[in-house]
Simulated scan of single mutants.
Amino acid sequence: MRRLSNLALLLVGVLYPFIVYFGMDHVSTPIFGLILGGLWLVRAPALWHQPGGRWMLGVTLVYCAVLAFGGEDDLLRWYPSLICALLLATFGLSLKFGPPMIERIARVTEPDLPPVAVRYTRKVTWLWVGFFFVNGTASGLLAKWGPLSWWTFYNGILAYSVMGVLFIGEWMLRQRLRRRINKAPMDGAAQRLLSHPWAAAAAGGYAGKLGPGMVVALAPAGRTALLRHGRAGVINELGQQAAGDDALSTPMVWRFVDVLPESARIDALLQAPLPTAPRVLGERLDGDTHVIELELPLDLACFADHFPDAPVLPGVVQIGWALELAAPRLGTPTTCRGMDALKFQRLLRPGDRIELTLRYDTVRGRLHFAYRTGDAHYSSAHLRLEGTDA
């Protein structure tokens, strides 16, 4: 019931100028007052415990009573100005007696606001104080001296358009501030990581809703540690180094790379999912065989689980890559119905650079693939493809 009444009061507030404009000839002012007062009474229990809610409720009920018993049509046009005056008083008094209204709203979802965010919420509260003052004044002037059509246009369209611009602009500024707040501890964490032998370079950033993150270019010792301890082990070790004595400096998202990207791309990298495909470094055609040079990303998604302490590229992933890379080059399907001569001879690990050879036997409908580096062979097979009769 409370949600329904809140929704009804919100809709009445938004549509009020149009309700007055089109309804004055059909509904008497006392009826307007009774309906509006009834909606505020239904919402009374919720307002009773909110800051400033009691006197806001009292003022609006007095206004509704004047409408109901006074019956003057011109009074209907003062409702938007009254609401602006009440909000102006609520927001303004919160600046004097604290905490500012926007800070109270922000702490509902983020109780532990840092000092820079507290200062920001105070500025935003001042912004809304200014808006309520200007908007209420303009609405009042139109209610007193302007035509009903002008009053309706301003309160029903123009005022809400300005509010929309303010909401969007403030949201954009808030996102920038959030990135700055989350990134600030990461700068110190990145500096601490540089003293660890596993990190050649590091840069902190913001991973959106996931929080602060860190991109680390692994040194040779770090790459060796990744092979021996897995992604989780490296994150645990570097996380302790990054945090130091400040738990807030612990990155929530980690990315491992060979070389740090440009600073402008750090946030995008942290917000992107872990890669699921190899990096194609180059390719050539050797007769009827495609030779593709590949590099396995240090952050390949499957390495996290296969295996946590000793990352190895799964055989099924190797087969899947062969099918996917062959399809656009050889015109073959991306599924197979069987395989022959399947061999796994060596392990493929994070950071490995290899060659994938692909050859399609059109007569037998088979795709021949092999992963190798020079004379060293990692895996190979003959795949019987879907849609072939062989």
Rank of each mutant, 00 (worst) to 15 (best):
V129H: 06
G204D: 10
K144P: 01
L166V: 09
M172P: 01
A190D: 05
A189R: 08
I181P: 01
A159D: 06
V165T: 14
W171Q: 08
M163G: 06
S161Q: 02
V215T: 10
T152N: 07
A202M: 06
V116Y: 02
V129C: 09
G164H: 10
F132V: 09
G130S: 04
S161M: 04
F167H: 07
G188W: 00
W150K: 09
G169P: 01
A203G: 09
L142N: 04
G146I: 11
R192H: 14
L193S: 13
G211K: 09
L148S: 09
A159S: 13
Q175D: 13
V162N: 05
Y154P: 00
G205S: 04
L113D: 03
A203W: 01
V124E: 13
G146K: 10
E170F: 03
P212T: 12
T109D: 14
P185N: 04
S139Y: 01
T125P: 12
G213I: 04
Q175P: 03
Q175V: 14
W198H: 10
P185V: 11
W126N: 11
Y120P: 04
W171D: 02
Y120T: 04
G204P: 05
Q191T: 06
S149Q: 12
T121N: 12
P212V: 11
A117I: 14
F132H: 14
A203D: 04
R119P: 00
I181E: 09
P212C: 06
W126A: 11
A117N: 05
I181K: 05
L177N: 03
G140P: 00
R192C: 01
D112R: 13
P147M: 14
S149P: 02
G208K: 04
N135F: 08
F167Y: 15
G136S: 05
P147Y: 12
L142T: 15
L194S: 13
G205D: 09
K183P: 01
I168Q: 08
G208W: 09
I181M: 13
M186Y: 12
P197K: 09
F131N: 07
V134W: 01
P114T: 15
A200K: 08
G205M: 06
L177C: 07
W128V: 07
L218P: 11
Y160G: 03
R176Y: 05
W151S: 05
V215C: 10
I181A: 00
A189E: 04
K209I: 13
P114R: 13
I157D: 00
L177M: 09
R179T: 09
V165D: 08
P212D: 12
T152M: 10
F133Y: 12
T109I: 15
W128P: 01
R174H: 09
S195Y: 12
P114D: 14
A203H: 14
A190Y: 00
D187L: 14
W126D: 08
G169I: 02
Q175E: 15
P147K: 11
W128E: 10
W126H: 08
W126G: 10
A143R: 00
G208I: 07
R122Y: 08
A184T: 15
P212Q: 10
V118G: 07
P147L: 11
G136M: 00
G211C: 06
L173T: 03
L158K: 03
P212A: 12
P114V: 13
R179W: 00
L141V: 10
F131V: 07
V134Y: 01
A200M: 02
P212Y: 05
R178V: 15
Q191L: 11
A202P: 12
A117E: 13
